[in-house]
Amino acid sequence: TFEVERIVRKKIVHGNTSYLVKWKNYSSKDNTWETEDDIRTKYGDLVDDFEK
């Protein structure tokens, strides 16, 4: 199971928000862009903290 360590960046393309996710126990080269809906479902607190 993958676990988010932190959110690195945010991008908005054509009105759709995605977050660059750093995965726990993986290197930064393994970071992936994930949709806001996918990340918010399980890691809403991390998204809220990133947006502060």
Rank of each mutant, 00 (worst) to 15 (best):
residue 39 I to T: 03
residue 15 G to A: 04
residue 12 I to V: 13
residue 14 H to I: 05
residue 29 K to E: 12
residue 3 E to V: 11
residue 21 V to F: 01
residue 22 K to P: 00
residue 5 E to L: 07
residue 10 K to H: 03
residue 41 T to K: 14
residue 21 V to G: 00
residue 23 W to T: 01
residue 51 E to C: 05
residue 48 D to K: 09
residue 42 K to M: 13
residue 13 V to N: 08
residue 16 N to L: 15
residue 29 K to Y: 10
residue 42 K to Y: 12
residue 7 I to R: 01
residue 21 V to C: 03
residue 35 T to Y: 08
residue 3 E to D: 08
residue 14 H to Y: 10
residue 44 G to I: 09
residue 39 I to W: 00
residue 17 T to Y: 04
residue 45 D to Q: 13
residue 6 R to E: 09
residue 10 K to V: 07
residue 4 V to H: 01
residue 7 I to P: 00
residue 18 S to W: 15
residue 37 D to L: 12
residue 39 I to Q: 00
residue 12 I to M: 08
residue 3 E to P: 04
residue 45 D to G: 11
residue 16 N to W: 09
residue 19 Y to I: 03
residue 17 T to P: 05
residue 19 Y to E: 00
residue 38 D to P: 03
residue 1 T to W: 13
residue 34 E to R: 06
residue 4 V to N: 00
residue 40 R to A: 06
residue 28 S to Y: 13
residue 36 E to W: 07
residue 8 V to S: 02
residue 32 T to A: 02
residue 4 V to F: 05
residue 45 D to P: 11
residue 9 R to S: 13
residue 7 I to D: 00
residue 13 V to E: 12
residue 21 V to M: 02
residue 46 L to G: 03
residue 35 T to M: 10
residue 28 S to M: 12
residue 13 V to M: 10
residue 1 T to Y: 13
residue 8 V to I: 14
residue 38 D to C: 15
residue 24 K to H: 06
residue 36 E to A: 11
residue 18 S to T: 11
residue 43 Y to H: 07
residue 7 I to Q: 00
residue 19 Y to M: 02
residue 37 D to M: 12
residue 50 F to Q: 03
residue 15 G to N: 06
residue 46 L to V: 07
residue 7 I to N: 00
residue 20 L to E: 05
residue 48 D to Q: 08
residue 50 F to T: 01
residue 10 K to M: 06
residue 43 Y to R: 05
residue 33 W to T: 00
residue 11 K to D: 04
residue 29 K to A: 13
residue 34 E to H: 10
residue 37 D to W: 12
residue 44 G to F: 10
residue 33 W to G: 00
residue 18 S to L: 15
residue 31 N to D: 08
residue 2 F to W: 14
residue 27 S to T: 12
residue 50 F to P: 02
residue 48 D to E: 11
residue 7 I to V: 06
residue 13 V to Y: 09
residue 25 N to Q: 06
residue 15 G to H: 07
residue 24 K to F: 07
residue 52 K to V: 08
residue 28 S to H: 14
residue 5 E to I: 06
residue 18 S to Y: 15
residue 17 T to H: 04
residue 32 T to L: 02
residue 50 F to R: 02
residue 9 R to P: 00
residue 43 Y to W: 15
residue 45 D to K: 13
residue 22 K to F: 05
residue 9 R to D: 14
residue 16 N to R: 14
residue 31 N to L: 14
residue 2 F to V: 10
residue 15 G to Q: 04
residue 43 Y to Q: 03
residue 14 H to A: 13
residue 39 I to H: 01
residue 6 R to A: 13
residue 29 K to P: 05
residue 16 N to Q: 15
residue 26 Y to D: 07
residue 27 S to K: 09
residue 41 T to S: 13
